[in-house]
């Protein structure tokens, strides 16, 4: 079965890194053969909001954030991998592999 992840990206200014991290995660996930949905929490608001259904489906959550995650109560009880927003920009595939490992451990 295809593996599924969700992620939140957010940076301090909320204009650049949030969206670069989003694109990086999607690109990385494609290479890894993983399905990912990424919610961006930027200066212009929340993009591609994750639904409770998405949270149920995903094996783990990646927080690629430099600021507080908005509405984080949605992810209570989920496996969360917390990294800096620049981590996926640097090496998204590694972040995704780490998230999958986290899910495997359980």
């Amino acid at each position: 079965m295809t593996r599924k992840l969700i992620a939140i990206t957010a940076c301090a200014t909320g204009v650049a890194h949030t969206y670069m991290a989003e694109k990086a995660l999607i690109k990385g996930a494609k290479k890894e053969g993983v399905l990912i949905k990424v919610e961006t929490q930027g200066a212009t608001g929340i993009g591609h909001r994750l639904t409770t259904r998405d949270v149920e489906i995903a094996e783990a959550v990646i927080f690629a954030t430099d600021t507080k995650v908005r509405d984080s109560e949605r992810f209570k009880g989920q496996l969360i991998l917390q990294v800096n927003v620049s981590a996926p920009i640097k090496d998204a595939q590694k972040v995704i592999e780490d998230a999958l490992k986290l899910a495997d451990k359980k």
Binding site: I26, K27, I57
Partner: peptide, 13 residues
């Protein structure tokens, strides 16, 4: 947006 490289059905399955 290159985000949708899979469909909602694939996500659900």
């Amino acid at each position: 947006d290159e985000g949708d490289y899979f469909t909602e059905d694939e996500w659900e399955s």
